[in-house]
Design a protein around this nucleic acid. Structure first.
Lengths: 339, 339
DNA sequence: TTGAAAGCGCTAACAC
DNA sequence: GTGTTAGCGCTTTCAA
């Protein structure tokens, strides 16, 4: 008496019902071409009738594939979790591609140093075919560690390791977007353009600041820089410092919309009209940017594309193919009322 | 010549090095007590030396455990993805508990009807020990299907199925929170209290509206209801209708902060002072609520707790224990300037 | 307390 | 084109 809850049909069961061997059933189930249509049909019928679903553990044990990909997210991921749309967007992009490839997504949240170790351990078990690393901070050892153990890895954003073997990465053209923003400001006649930059241990923070410096230098102007950490609060604090130290500024490029929203509030409190007195441009095209006061001119990055591309690349790597060391997706200036 | 990338040490390898049998190594690795300290040490040393990590597929094949839990999220999950903090918050709560239990999280995004089927199929493969269902819409057949196949299931929010076997669920005290909000309004002398409700095919939408109706009825007042879908835009549209149809209102309870933010904008545009002319209370305590104009009085739900509790319950279920049919977590009124 | 041995359900040579 | 067979690495009786 088999309890359907605990004892599911196996290849053997299907084989008997279809009157063929296990191997043949396996071939049909795995879509091998070398099977007579008649037999194929018989097997399909038996599979259908029994509600057969392959046991992934057994399959994985012998095939050494797991058909799943891990996404590792450092939990205090300011960027991931502060921008309201970033994380869900990336996730949906990844999900879409993995679904198309019939792979599963294993989410690994790394909160503490202890979880870092736990994750490494888990990945050593080879329970996934590849790893996507998101939102790295500083010179995170993760990519190098994983590559050392032969694990296919792709990172979101250029890894900051120096010297170590770098994992292939996907990123957006931060600097290009910022240049477009600053040039827009300059073209409209702004002459004292400051920036509120992001944290300098994250590639997004670094590159956006670099883009600003480039554009300012190219215009023969002076850089005016305050650093925030991508949160609204830090944007407010930075804007206050800017107003104190450089009251003459007439424009500011802010490295994230959340910080820009904070900056907007401070400017309002300080009685500076935006964009009349001070023009403001943000980065991210976060939902909040459309509803700030005034609506924020910002730089949009193709979030969904980033997710899709990340997934495509790991899958390629996991399949043993070569991939580009770097893939840079374009950004786009979205002009609204604030500049 | 073994390539360390492809051929990892097995129980056998460890056993030979430690001079014991595979069974003994297995016992040590799985923390069995019935092993001599001397032997235990020898095995631990061998494990350490070889960097042995058990092969989960092999383990799962025989033990029939997978040590992983699935989180199923319907992708057009308005609530999950519109409130900036909800999804990440739940995720962190779940992640924390699973980490403590050394389980993995498999994320299943259900975008289309096709993915619904794919997910069912996947879960039939018993690749996870339990399932958490998030943000169901309408009478979603998922919980019943999963329970029918003997899968441990817990849902976030009371399932809306009628008659069918209901999965145990975790939810917050929506109605209680709303009652507190409406009573706060009434206590401050408001006499025409309207509501902008959420979608009526989601439990959060339904219960929050029910709480409003209760409180209004208890006060012997008339319900004034507009329906939104939890997005800012729908909140704006609903507020406009309210202003048109019931210009005399002096307060409105809005079923989500995002909608409330929209309502605030419309009120501002209409020249109605908040809270002077119209008091506004939201729900969710979303990040945006602290920064709206004016800051929003709202109902806070313990998001992180929800996540943790969801995880705790599936784990319990997966371990074969009984769990409560329903767990309702408290909500709390957060008073800010808008009411 | 420890070891030997029997599988878990599947894939992949290899033979026919 | 199809079947036979040998494991994949592990847990778990059952004996000793």
């Amino acid at each position: 008496m088999r309890d359907p809850r605990t004892s599911r049909p196996t290849l053997e069961t299907v084989a008997r019902l279809a009157g063929v061997s296990r191997a043949t059933v396996s071939r049909v189930v795995n879509g091998s071409t070398a099977v007579t249509p008649r037999v194929q049909e018989a097997v399909d019928r038996a599979v259908e009738q029994l509600g057969y679903v392959p046991n992934p553990a057994a399959r994985s044990l012998v095939s050494r594939r797991t058909d799943s990909i891990a996404l590792v997210v450092p939990e205090p991921a300011t960027r991931m979790f502060s921008d309201d749309a970033f994380f869900p967007g990336i996730l949906r992009g990844i999900g879409q591609e993995l679904e198309a490839a019939d792979k599963q997504l294993v989410l690994l949240l790394a909160s503490t140093p202890a979880s870092h170790e736990r994750i490494t351990r888990y990945l050593r078990g080879r329970t996934v075919d590849g790893v996507i690393l998101a939102s790295l901070h500083g010179a995170d050892p993760f990519p190098t560690e994983l590559m050392a153990m032969g694990m296919p890895v792709v990172t979101s954003g250029r890894p900051l390791g120096r010297g170590a073997a770098l994992a292939p990465y996907i990123d957006v053209d931060h600097a290009g977007g910022v240049r477009a923003a600053v040039e827009h400001l300059l073209a409209r006649g702004r002459t004292r353009v400051a920036t509120i930059a992001g944290p300098q241990d994250m590639i997004a923070g670094i590159e956006r600041l670099a883009g600003y410096r480039d554009a300012i230098a190219a215009a023969g102007m002076r850089s005016i820089v305050e650093i925030g950490d991508f949160t609204r609060e830090s944007g407010m604090a930075a804007m206050r410092r800017l107003l104190d130290d450089e009251p003459g500024i007439d424009a500011v490029f802010v490295a994230s919309d959340l910080m820009a929203d904070g900056a907007l509030r401070v400017l309002r409190q300080a009685g500076r009209a935006v964009p009349g007195d001070v023009a403001v441009i943000g980065f991210d095209d976060a939902a909040t940017s459309r509803y700030s006061e005034p609506p924020l001119t910002t730089v949009r990055q193709p979030i969904h594309e980033i997710g899709r591309t990340l997934a495509q690349q790991v899958l390629r790597l996991a399949a043993g193919d070569e991939v580009d060391d770097a893939l840079i997706l374009p950004t786009e200036l979205i002009v609204r009322e604030s500049a």
